[in-house]
Structure formats: structure tokens, C-alpha cells
Design a protein around this nucleic acid. Sequence first.
DNA 1: TAGATTGTTAATCGATTAACAATC
DNA 2: TAGATTGTTAATCGATTAACAATC
Lengths: 228, 228
Amino acid sequence: MFSVLLYKLEIIKGGLALNYNGKRVPPVVIRRLPRYYRYLGELIRNGVMRISSNALSERMDVTASQIRQDFNYFGGFGQQGYGYNVEHLYMEIGDILGLHDGYRTAIVGAGNLGRALANHDTFEKRGFKLRAIFDNSPDVVGTTIHGIEVMHIDVMDDFLAENPIDIGILAVPRSAVSETADRLVAGGVKGLLNFSYAELKMEKDVAIENVHLSDSLMTLSYKIKQGE
Amino acid sequence: MFSVLLYKLEIIKGGLALNYNGKRVPPVVIRRLPRYYRYLGELIRNGVMRISSNALSERMDVTASQIRQDFNYFGGFGQQGYGYNVEHLYMEIGDILGLHDGYRTAIVGAGNLGRALANHDTFEKRGFKLRAIFDNSPDVVGTTIHGIEVMHIDVMDDFLAENPIDIGILAVPRSAVSETADRLVAGGVKGLLNFSYAELKMEKDVAIENVHLSDSLMTLSYKIKQGE
DNA sequence: TAGATTGTTAATCGATTAACAATC
DNA sequence: TAGATTGTTAATCGATTAACAATC
């Protein structure tokens, strides 16, 4: 009873911190996982079978200590005196990230960005399944993007009822974000990837990632202006 | 003399930390500036003239303390008993970010993503000037995107020599990233915004921002899988 | 003036790095 | 076995929050 209280307290206190096997994983560690995944993929392509935290740290420009700490939040995948088996580590991190779960996605908004995202092969390569594209413009509805026929946004609710979707990708104008997000969540979507300029917040318990392309350009601009 | 040494040491020790008026600004603060800028823009659109750190903190889901600390790295823009003048703050942050410097950009790679970026209005709204688009495919060269005629990548070096560009935006396949980046830097570009899957690193003193669209999708996937 | 709210210092919290015993 | 390298604890560093005097 008391331990349950402590546990809840932990969740509240941790804020955005996420749990893995009961362990609290700092968000900053989670955000590093895709980067590890990327480098490990490259190592595999280069035929590297095993790697030490030290060798990896040199390639990735992080400390070996951090690498070992990070992996240990998930149980530690290495072997003393040997290092890490690259393929195994790659698999494990893919597992942790849910890349082997075949999450189904739908893109809402088939403008320039929506089309680019639909054609973005990396999403598929990472195991995500694009199942639908929606738009409200008669010019686009009915056209085929990446082998998928664009549907009218009006049929979205019905479609979601019949075809469960895990992730909604928002590439709609700022004005439409909030309503679209609500409808996707009502339709059972578990997570939202938002590319619109508006920052998305939701009451309901749904995962959200906001991506702001112009933020990166502005950060770059700062670096240039202030002379790095 | 000694203080110069201390100063240099500071830069080295700070790693990626950037300086503003001699003050060391933590990278994490810089990355928050575009977000402030976004919210302030929204306040202006809503006709809000002034705001306290407290009121802003509620909207943005950060602490008022952090807001005041952040702004103070740049000198503090508020007034005791009053708060912050929204328009003034917006201007100041825009200044700090270099948004009023009219940085000229060129996009390399006119595939789906490159085209989406060329049409991404927010870049323009933030004061960036798109001056050229390059590609190597005969199918695209000569076509017009967002009012700009796509040039062949072969003429890029000559073009850069005649028309200074500040920021190179990379939307090329992974295999071409490194060479393209080198050529842009040789052509005098001061910063690179890289959207390709490969992580870009440069020897030379040039600002870099890597954007990995799939990283956000993977982070979202983790949140869904581990139940936030 | 009194009330509000900043700018700034001090305290706390969290994340990174260092160190080393465990062990393959 | 001896050497290498992890997993993990302890030390350091940095970032966030709290508190309050300064001041508009």
C-alpha cells in the first residue's frame, strides 16, 4: 500500500520521465536511443560485429561512461572484457523503441510536407506501416501518394473505427491541428507526431511529439550570428 | 593576458556552449529561445501587450523562474512590477536569434523533402531568404519550385562564388551529404541544416544542425510502447 | 505610496563523468 | 590465466527551482 503510494509519487515527481521495467529512465536518455540506433545501423552496414563503449564513444562524440550508463537503464547488453555485440544491441534498442511492433500510421494533410513524409522511406525502414493519408482538398483526394490513395478527411472517423491506427502524423495548417488531433484520439490513436507550427497539448493520455522544423533553423541562425 | 587564457579555457570547457556578450549561454537555453519566440508570436496575434513570467509560465508549462533565468542570460528584458512588453521581447529574441539579419539560404536536393522545405512558409516568415535550389536530376533541373528555378548541382560552386549564401539546407541522400557539405563550406556557407539521415560533422568552423525526422517518430514510438 | 514583479543569489535537483571492483 | 571491458557506485558538474531584495 505504502509502496504503491511511493511509486505514484515517483511518477508524479519524475514528470515526463518514462519507466522501463520499473526503472525510471530520464527523458534525455530516451532521446539518445534513436541516435545510438542510427550509429549501430551504420556499424552493421560496415560489417562491424562488436564494439566497446570506448570505440563507440569516439565515433559518436560522447563519453564511454555515458554510453554504459545509458544502456544500463535497460539492463546492460554488454559482456565484460568483450564489449557489445553490435547486432544484438541494435535489436535490443529497436525492441525498446517499439520498432518491431509494426505500429500503423496515418498522415493527415497531404500538402508538401505530408507528401514528403509519406515518401520518407526511413519511416518504413524503421518498421512503421503507413496505412492512410487524409486531406480536405478535392485536388488531392483520390490521388495516389506512395501507393496510397488519399482519402477525404470526412471519412477519417469511419476509417479509424474500421482500421485501427496507432500513430497520427499531423501535417495540417496550424488552424486545423487541435480539431484533427481530437478526432484522431477519439478514433483510438495512441500517439501524435505533430509537424504543424502550433504546439500540441492534449488532456487525454496520449503520447505527443512536436517537431518544429523552423526551430532548428533558428538555432542554427543563432550559432551563426553569435559565432558559435 | 591571464584573463584571455581564462576566457579561452572557458570556451573549451563549455564545449558547445555559446557566448552572448561574453556570457556563456548553455545550449539548453538557446534551444528554448525559438519556443519562446513562438509563444510570443501567438501572444501578439492575440493582442496581448504585456505578460509576467508567471502568466507565461502557465501557458508554456515551464517555471517562471526558468523564464526569468533564461532571459537574464541576455540581459533581462523586463521591468519590475510590470513584467515583459510582449512586442519588445519578441523583437529582442528575434535579434538574438539572428532573424533580422536576412540570412540567405540555398536548398540542395529537390526531392520530396527539399520541395517541402522550399515551400515551407515559416522559414520566410522568420526572415530567411531562399536564394537557390540545386539538384542533380535532369527531371527536376529547370523546373520552378516556390518561384525559384532549380539549378544543376554542377553549377553550385560557381553560383556560390557570385552569390553569397549563409545557410545551406541539405536534403540529399545519405551518400551525398558529406561531399555536398564540403562544397557548400568551400563556397563560403556559414551554417548547415542537415535533414539527411547521415549525421554531419565538419572539421571546419561552421555551424551545424542535424535534424532527424525519424528520431522523433522513434521517441514517440517508445512513449507509446512503454505507456508514457 | 503599496503592490507587483523582476533580476539575481542560494539551494536543490538531476545528469554526466570518473573510478574501480566484478567478471568475461 | 592475464587483459579487457563492462556494470555500478561515488564524485563532479550543470541546470532548475526557490527565495527574496531591488525597484518599477
